Amino acid sequence: MFKSFFLDRRWFRWSILGTALILYVTWYKVQIDVQVNEWFGSFYNLVQEALTTPNAVEFEEFLAGCIEFFNIVSIYIVIAVALEFFVRHYVFRWRTAMNDYYMRHWSKIHHIEGASQRVQEDTMRFARIVEGLGVSFMRSIMTLIAFLPILWTLSESVTELPWIGKVDHSLVYLAILSAIFGTVLLAVVGIKLPGLEFKNQKVEAAYRKELVLGEDHESRAEPETVKELFVNVRRNYFNLYRHYLYFDVAKWSYIQYTVIMPYIFMGPTIVSGAITLGVLQQILRAFGKVEESFQFLVHSWSTIVELMSIYKRLKAFEVQIESAITAEKAAVTD
């Protein structure tokens, strides 16, 4: 899964240099986010001044603030589109490297149930998910590096917390505690999902194989056999849906309820008028970025479950290849 792409000289430009390029551009996008956060502060202060004192702000000044935002995000759009285009090619090259490796050993593994699906579908899904999760994880780290100092400084404007009182840099601690709570919560309620996803692919592969064999052999894919296999598929899907039900309840409850948390904890500061609208927007946006970075596992848990399932299937696939190669070497030695 990894050696065929990252340790093969043929793919050096894509695997090593391509990865470095993706990470650099991701960091540049984070820096643009920082610029946007600074823009929020100045622009909303301008809006507050305009709303508080009529005609205190000229329309040209207001329009200049809007144009500044347009200029910042225009660069972001160009970079984001170019990066997405490059990533699609990057993922396909990774799939190609895996596909080439598996096909070189096809004679050793073609008898394995679901072999065709693993080569044709799982390679693409694995490369796409690993790339996506990898970039998301690195973006989370980079966002923390960029926004944590900002939130640390802006938190000094929060005079006190409700029911607690004065806590220095309180919003940083709030973001960390919120993310830890969400991560532990979803890890506990979703502990059975990886195994169910893995089992789901097994029953799907058995059903699909019987149908494929039925295309060429009249003795296969008999109604009773197909019915029994599909019952297994349905049973596992319904079990999976039931477990996803309480997982989704926990996930969406956590994500939605935590939206209001920074407002509650900043309540005394807001009602006392200790900060301006611009500073409030900067704090909220910085808090959101930091909290989202700490919540990487929360937002990615469903994708991680899918990846674990695919990894298990491909790992079992590669074990078969390695066993066959070892057996061949032993036969030659004898």
Rank of each mutant, 00 (worst) to 15 (best):
Ala146Arg: 01
Thr269Phe: 04
Glu60Cys: 00
Glu58Pro: 00
Ser300Glu: 15
Gln320Lys: 12
Val91Phe: 04
Trp27Tyr: 15
Val184Arg: 09
Ala97Gly: 02
Ile67Trp: 04
Phe6Val: 07
Val249Tyr: 12
Asp33Asn: 13
Glu322Val: 00
Glu218Ile: 08
Thr26Met: 08
Ser116Phe: 09
Ile67Asp: 00
Gln31Leu: 11
Trp301Thr: 10
Gln31Val: 03
Asn236Met: 14
Thr19Trp: 15
Tyr76Met: 11
Thr52Asn: 10
Phe62Trp: 08
Pro149Leu: 01
Ser253His: 02
Ile264Ala: 06
Val36Phe: 11
Val36Arg: 09
Gly65Phe: 02
Ile270Gly: 07
Ile310Phe: 08
Leu240Asn: 07
Val290Tyr: 03
Ala331Gly: 01
Val212Ile: 14
Val158Phe: 04
His299Met: 05
Thr303Lys: 13
Ser309Val: 04
Gly134Arg: 05
Pro223Asn: 08
Leu23Lys: 02
Gly134Thr: 06
Gln256Asp: 06
Val57Thr: 05
Val332Cys: 02
Glu228Ala: 14
Ile264Glu: 03
Ile75Tyr: 12
Phe12His: 15
Val81Cys: 08
Leu148Thr: 06
Tyr90Thr: 05
Glu204His: 10
Phe287Ile: 06
Tyr257Ala: 10
Phe238Ala: 11
Trp14Pro: 01
Tyr241Ala: 15
Asn71Phe: 07
Leu284Val: 03
Arg13Met: 07
Gly41Thr: 01
Ile304Phe: 06
Glu121Gly: 09
Ala250Leu: 03
Phe40Ile: 04
Leu297Arg: 03
Glu68Pro: 00
Thr333Cys: 05
Leu307Pro: 03
Ile141Cys: 12
Thr333Arg: 14
Leu314Tyr: 08
Ala205Pro: 01
Met98Gly: 14
Glu131Thr: 15
Arg285Lys: 00
Glu68Asn: 11
Thr53Ile: 13
Gly114Phe: 10
Ala187Trp: 12
